[in-house]
Simulated scan of single mutants.
Amino acid sequence: MIVLHHLEHSRSQRVLWLLEELGLRYEIRRYARNKQTMLAPPELRQVHPLGKSPVITDGSITVAESGAIVEYLLDTHGQGALRPAPGTAERRRFTYWLHFAEGTAMPPLLMQLVFDQIRRAKVPFFIKPVVKGIADKVGTAFIRPNIESQLRFMDDELSQRPWFAGAEFSAADIQMSFPLEAAAARAGLDDRFPKLQDWLERIHARPAYARALAAGGPYEILG
């Protein structure tokens, strides 16, 4: 039996969605975030040494990292679903976006989260302008331009095909859901990016996405 160790409001939601899309039997073990730090509880370290989510167990096998979990589930239980055929342009795009999601899209979004928290941090009033000034400068000079450049790139890509890998929905779209939901929540994914907005509407309309939300409980992008 596949067990998803599911941390609330986290990347594990898209693994749950993948399980629903594949129609697999699974069990959810739920973990709540620490209310002060918003970090995962120490109990997750009993599953994986880093104590982070997502992580799955499948019998004696433990797999962590979103992309690795996606590949494991497709290799082991996918029966050819949600992944283009090897050697095709679609498969190459699939692999690219599967890794782009965490390797390229998420770092500036995480930096924005960190600097937003720095901007809101309680500090002595006389250094507040300095802290805010540094955070604003980093955001203006580096973070925002990187996020907007990536959003333009992704929007352009989706103007050429309906899904990230090609004409068919794939697990690459599932993997891309978290950074684009984060961008919509934090980074102003607005009318400048109509293809991305349309893509988000289409993934949210999928029955398996709705089932995953019902199974996983509350899900919102933190920050």
Rank of each mutant, 00 (worst) to 15 (best):
residue 55 V to M: 10
residue 82 L to F: 06
residue 57 T to H: 07
residue 166 G to R: 08
residue 23 G to L: 06
residue 204 H to R: 15
residue 36 Q to E: 15
residue 117 Q to M: 09
residue 193 F to V: 05
residue 222 L to S: 15
residue 119 R to M: 14
residue 133 G to P: 10
residue 128 K to Q: 13
residue 71 E to P: 04
residue 76 T to F: 12
residue 93 R to K: 10
residue 57 T to Q: 10
residue 222 L to K: 14
residue 176 M to S: 04
residue 206 R to M: 06
residue 81 A to G: 13
residue 171 A to P: 04
residue 214 A to V: 11
residue 73 L to Y: 03
residue 177 S to K: 01
residue 172 A to G: 01
residue 25 R to D: 15
residue 147 I to M: 04
residue 207 P to Q: 06
residue 157 E to I: 07
residue 147 I to D: 06
residue 192 R to G: 13
residue 77 H to C: 01
residue 110 L to V: 12
residue 85 A to F: 07
residue 207 P to L: 02
residue 202 R to V: 01
residue 58 D to V: 02
residue 111 M to H: 15
residue 93 R to S: 10
residue 126 F to L: 11
residue 36 Q to K: 09
residue 140 T to N: 14
residue 5 H to T: 02
residue 137 K to F: 01
residue 53 S to L: 04
residue 9 H to V: 02
residue 26 Y to V: 00
residue 27 E to S: 04
residue 123 V to G: 11
residue 148 E to A: 03
residue 193 F to W: 14
residue 141 A to N: 13
residue 180 L to S: 08
residue 130 V to S: 14
residue 47 V to P: 09
residue 37 T to C: 08
residue 94 F to V: 05
residue 60 S to I: 07
residue 53 S to V: 02
residue 121 A to G: 09
residue 75 D to F: 03
residue 76 T to V: 15
residue 179 P to D: 07
residue 148 E to Y: 11
residue 22 L to A: 05
residue 78 G to Y: 00
residue 171 A to R: 03
residue 31 Y to V: 02
residue 101 A to Y: 04
residue 208 A to S: 15
residue 80 G to Y: 13
residue 110 L to Q: 15
residue 18 L to H: 00
residue 72 Y to Q: 02
residue 161 R to E: 07
residue 192 R to S: 15
residue 30 R to Q: 09
residue 5 H to E: 12
residue 180 L to C: 02
residue 172 A to K: 08
residue 134 I to C: 03
residue 38 M to H: 13
residue 18 L to Y: 01
residue 68 A to I: 10
residue 159 S to H: 13
residue 16 L to Y: 01
residue 64 A to V: 14
residue 222 L to R: 15
residue 206 R to N: 02
residue 158 L to H: 01
residue 61 I to G: 12
residue 158 L to D: 04
residue 92 R to Y: 10
residue 128 K to Y: 08
residue 87 G to M: 05
residue 143 I to M: 08
residue 96 Y to A: 05
residue 112 Q to K: 15
residue 21 E to T: 00
residue 25 R to T: 14
residue 84 P to G: 12
residue 201 E to K: 11
residue 62 T to L: 08
residue 23 G to Q: 06
residue 140 T to C: 04
residue 55 V to P: 12
residue 19 L to T: 01
residue 115 F to G: 00
residue 92 R to D: 06
residue 109 L to A: 06
residue 44 L to H: 09
residue 149 S to C: 07
residue 51 G to M: 05
residue 209 Y to C: 00
residue 163 W to V: 03
residue 107 P to N: 06
residue 152 R to V: 13
residue 213 L to K: 07
residue 205 A to Y: 10
residue 55 V to F: 09
residue 68 A to Y: 07
residue 160 Q to H: 13
residue 78 G to V: 00
residue 220 E to K: 12
residue 63 V to D: 02
residue 35 K to N: 04
residue 222 L to I: 09
residue 155 D to W: 05
residue 215 A to M: 00
residue 84 P to C: 09
residue 210 A to K: 08
residue 195 K to L: 14
residue 61 I to A: 15
residue 78 G to I: 00
residue 208 A to T: 03
residue 99 H to L: 06
residue 125 F to Y: 08
residue 203 I to D: 12
residue 60 S to C: 12
residue 210 A to L: 08
residue 191 D to L: 05
residue 10 S to T: 14
